[in-house]
Design a binder for these strands. Structure first.
Length: 282
DNA sequence: CCCGGAACCTGAAGGC
DNA sequence: TGCCTTCAGGTTCCGG
């Protein structure tokens, strides 16, 4: 479930509580979540290490450890990190106890989340594109990225090798605000559309972080509280629900296998809209 | 290279 | 109530 704003929220709220703490115990209830090294070695090498930093890269969380190694987590669709959360949870896949008695839980109903313990973090996150809230992500960069790409603009936004951290919800939200059809070929965006999309991407991600992430489904902050970012979303995620701007029923399509919601009127460019806008006779 | 589809997993929600 | 289908905020692999 979590995208960049949700992961960043977790990072910000977790960092002050765990910085300097030392792993006292690690239990793995779903060893398949450990991608590298083997689960038992992962556990052994983690215990005793102190946390000296917590960083986010795209949708990955990177715990910098005293040995110089890095513990990397990806929550995928349903993962949660909960700190000292008292309620029972039948989806706990890993549990990290610290030297001060606090406990970090990795809960993940769908078992899709992944963990790595590596010396070289680039072996996991090295292939990611730039941070969309970083200084290297400029309107010019976005324009260059889209130039010559025939893929639908939404597919480009979701490609983590091109830009890191945008997921299905924030992609739909950015395209709605920029009034661009999700299936429009990236190379066909006008200069003005690129500028609007750039502004919309930063706006939705910054808003998401400011409101502590979106709890559409099961997202929780490390203290168990929900985020509020979804209250500020504009595209309804329901086919046929009215567009908040023009009242037209929202459409749903599958794009690269992902549920995609958009307003056929505000975001134009649908086949019917293009046909009806094209003079059929001369 | 591009794309669609399936796989990895479970649970919630909707239709009947 | 219960059964069945569809969908879910991600990533990766495989075949055409």
């Amino acid at each position: 479930m979590p995208e960049l704003p949700e992961i960043e929220t977790i990072r910000r709220e977790l960092l002050p509580k765990i910085i300097g703490r030392r792993f006292a115990g690690v239990s793995l209830n779903w060893p398949k979540a450990v991608r590298q090294p083997a689960a038992e070695e992962f556990r052994r090498r983690l215990v005793g290490q102190a946390i000296c930093g917590l960083e986010r890269r795209g949708k990955y969380l990177i715990f910098h450890l005293s040995s110089g190694e890095a513990l990397i987590l990806h929550l995928r669709m349903s993962g949660l990190l909960l700190l000292n959360y008292p309620e029972p949870d039948r989806h706990i896949r890993a549990s990290f106890c610290f030297d001060d008695g606090s406990r970090l839980i990795f809960s993940d109903p769908r078992k899709l989340g992944a963990m790595w313990l590596v010396n070289d973090e680039d072996s996991v996150v090295g292939g990611l594109g730039p941070e969309p809230l970083g200084t290297s992500f400029t309107p010019q960069f976005l324009g260059e990225l889209l130039r010559g790409r025939s893929a639908p603009i939404k597919a480009v936004l979701l490609d983590q090798r091109l830009i890191a951290g945008i997921g299905n919800i924030y992609a739909d939200e950015a395209l709605f605000r920029a009034q661009i059809h999700p299936q429009k070929s990236a190379r066909d965006l006008s200069e003005d559309e690129v500028r609007r999309l750039y502004a919309a991407i930063r706006e939705v991600l910054e808003s998401g972080i400011a409101h502590k992430g979106a709890t559409m489904r099961n997202f929780r902050r490390p203290n168990g509280q929900r985020g509020d970012a979804h209250c500020f979303f504009k595209v309804p995620r329901g086919k046929g629900r009215p567009c908040p701007v023009c009242g037209t029923p929202i459409e749903r399509i599958a794009l690269r296998g992902r549920g995609t919601y958009f307003c056929p009127r505000c975001q134009g460019g649908s086949l019917t809209a293009m046909l009806s806008a094209t003079p059929l006779t001369s």
